[in-house]
C-alpha cells in the first residue's frame, strides 16, 4: 500500500481498509495493480495477497 508492505489478520475489502485508515468519505482514489477501483466497487472488492494498492489525494501543485 503506497509502496509499503502491510499485513492483515483476516480477509479485508477495500471499503473496510479505507474505514480502518479513517479515509472513508475523504477525497481519495484507489488503484489496485495499476487499475482504478471505482468508489462504487470499494465495498465489494476484496484485497488479495500481493496486491499493490495506491491511495492518492489532490495536493498543491503547478
Amino acid at each position: 500500500m503506497n509502496g509499503k508492505a502491510h499485513s492483515f489478520e483476516a480477509p479485508l475489502g477495500i471499503g473496510a481498509l479505507l474505514s480502518r485508515l479513517e479515509l472513508s468519505g475523504k477525497k481519495i482514489a484507489v488503484e489496485r495493480n495499476g487499475e482504478i477501483v471505482p468508489k462504487s466497487a470499494h465495498a465489494e472488492t476484496m484485497i488479495r495477497d500481493g496486491d499493490q494498492l495506491e491511495i492518492v489525494a489532490a495536493v498543491g501543485g503547478g
Binding site: N2, A29, V56, V59, G62
Partner: peptide
C-alpha cells in the same frame, strides 16, 4: 487552478 495527485499519508489523515 492546477493540483497534483500524490499518495495520501497513511495513518496521518486525521
Amino acid at each position: 487552478v492546477t493540483v497534483a495527485i500524490r499518495r495520501t499519508n497513511i495513518g496521518q489523515n486525521r
